[in-house]
Nucleic acid binder design. Structure first.
Lengths: 168, 168
DNA sequence: TTAAATTTTCAAAATTTATTGAAAGTTTAA
DNA sequence: TTAAACTTTCAATAAATTTTGAAAATTTAA
C-alpha cells in the first residue's frame, strides 16, 4: 500500500471510530491528520487536506484544543497560526479519558449517588428493583472511575504491566 | 425524592449517557425502563411509559435483543410478547463490551494492523511520523483488547479485586 | 492611523439520524 | 377457513447534528 493511501485509510478509520463513540467525525479526522503530520499545519492546509470549510476547520481546531489534544504554534516572522498534535499515544488516551470522565462520567455518578439514596418501602418490588439496579450500576461506575483515576496518574508501562501481571 | 421522580431521572440519565457514547437515546431509555421494572413489559406498556411510537418501540426492542440485553418472554395463555432485561450489572457491562469490541474495536484493529505493515523510506519524516503514530495506537488498542478479553471471561469480584490489589 | 491578513462567529443550508404511523405480514383461536 | 390480535416493515417526516460561507471582529505591519 502507498503511504498516501495508508494515510487516507487511517484518517477514515479514526473518523469512523470517533463517530461510533460520540465524537464528531470531522474532529476525529482533523486529529488523525495532525497525528500523522510531522509538522504543525495551518488552517488552510487542513481545510485543503480534508475538503472542509474554514468555519468548520476553525471550530474543530478550537474543540481539539479544548480537549487538550492539539496546540497552537507560532512561527517566527509569520502571522498565521499553526496547529500541532501531541503524538504521545498514552497522553492522548489519558487526555480523552480525563475529559470524558469530567464531562460524562462524573455528572452521571452524581445522579446515581442521589438516586441510590432514595428511600422507599422495602416490601415494594418496584422500589426494590429500582434500588438494586441503581445501586449496582453505581458500584460499577465507581470502580470504573477509580480505575480511570489511577490511569490518569500512571505511566503507560506501569499501568499495563500491572494489569497484565495478573491477567497474563 | 419520590420513587416516580427518581425513575424518571434514572431513565433520563441513562438516555443521556447512552447518546454521549454513540448509543441511540431511545434504546438506552427503553433499557433503563426495563432495568428498573421487576416484571417483563409489553410493547404497549413501553410505548406508553416513554411516549414513543409502536414502530420505534418494536425496532428498539429488537436492537436490545440483538445486543443481548433484553429477552422476549411469553406468558401462559397470553398472546402478547413480554420483554425482560437482565438485571445483572456485570453481565450487562460484559455484554456491551463484547458487542462494541466486535462491532467497533475489532474492525479498527484490523485496519491498524494493515497500516502498521505499510513499508516506506525510514529517512522520510512523513513516513516515520505516520508509522510511529499508527504503531503506537495499534499497541495501545491491543492492550485494551486484551484487557477486554479478560473482562469478558471474568467474574466481577475477581476482576475488580485484581485491579485494585495493585492500584489500591 | 490604515488596510491587509487572519481568525471568529453564527444564521442558514445540508446532512445524518431517529421517529412515526399506517399498511402489510404473521400467528393463533375458534 | 376466518378474523382478531399482535408484530413487523418502511416510506415519509421530523428532529438533531454538522457544515458552510460570508460578514464581522481582531491582529499586526507599515
Amino acid at each position: 500500500m502507498e503511504l498516501a493511501e495508508a494515510k487516507q485509510k487511517f484518517i477514515e478509520a479514526w473518523g469512523k471510530l470517533g463517530s461510533e463513540w460520540g465524537i464528531n467525525r470531522t474532529m476525529a479526522q482533523v486529529h488523525a491528520l495532525l497525528l500523522i503530520s510531522p509538522e504543525a499545519m495551518t488552517t488552510e492546509e487542513i481545510m485543503e487536506s480534508l475538503s472542509i470549510s474554514r468555519g468548520n476547520a476553525n471550530m474543530t481546531l478550537r474543540d481539539l484544543i479544548g480537549w487538550g489534544l492539539v496546540e497552537k504554534q507560532h512561527k517566527a516572522g509569520e502571522r498565521k497560526e499553526y496547529f500541532y498534535a501531541d503524538k504521545d499515544t498514552w497522553n492522548i488516551a489519558r487526555q480523552v479519558a480525563k475529559e470524558r470522565k469530567k464531562r460524562e462520567l462524573d455528572p452521571v455518578l452524581k445522579v446515581l449517588d442521589e438516586l441510590s439514596k432514595v428511600k422507599g418501602d422495602t416490601a415494594d418490588l418496584e422500589y426494590k428493583t429500582f434500588n438494586k439496579s441503581v445501586t449496582d450500576i453505581n458500584r460499577l461506575a465507581k470502580n470504573v472511575d477509580k480505575t480511570l483515576e489511577t490511569m490518569l496518574k500512571a505511566e503507560e508501562n506501569w499501568f499495563w504491566g500491572s494489569i497484565f501481571k495478573i491477567f497474563k
